[in-house]
Amino acid sequence: MRPVKLALIDYGAGNLHSVHKALEYSGADVSITADPADAEGADALVLPGQGHFRQVMEAFLESGFEPVVRAHLAAERPFLGICVGLQLLMASSEEAPGVPGLGVLAGTVKRFPKGVSVPQMGWNQVFKTGDPALLAGIPDGAFVYFANSYYVDFSDESVSGTTTEYGGVRFKSAVSHGQLYATQFHPEKSQVVGLKVLANFCTLTRL
């Protein structure tokens, strides 16, 4: 079986070191690419993201990756978004009113309520909705690592994935819908559970 070729999209939004190392550890043949042309032949795309929604979105549009990502998603090929890489898929974000998201998923990005310690910075639990392939083999209530002040609010809460509770809000912490996978948490920093998520993604990419 040939190794899965993953393209880790480098569009200037933060630090790719951890996610690169964790994907390699999980058995992927992963290349960091800043050139959209390089990503076109990849089996799967990984879209990370850290920072302010506006800056991340602007960097993403400037990078020229948008058409490649849209075509990849339209062809229902394997895709993994991480943190703001998930949030970019939504219609909009309260962090940057007036800045449209990609609108691939129905819903918006909202801020945790006032009075809650933000960012949520640390370990929290995930509980499954449906039977998310991305989380196969991971028990309900497993802990993963979060670093977010904003969360995705899905129009359709029944989308397969996981939910997590923080600050009195129950939010979508992972999506596993067809070949579209995304996590609000950071699998690359979530030790054994996170590495299992990434290994699952590599396995699903081979199907």
């Binding site: 630090n15 850290q50 920072g51 910075m121």
Partner: peptide
């Protein structure tokens, strides 16, 4: 914070 995000 502007460059790498507050979480970093």
């Amino acid at each position: 914070a502007d460059h790498y995000g507050s979480q970093a």
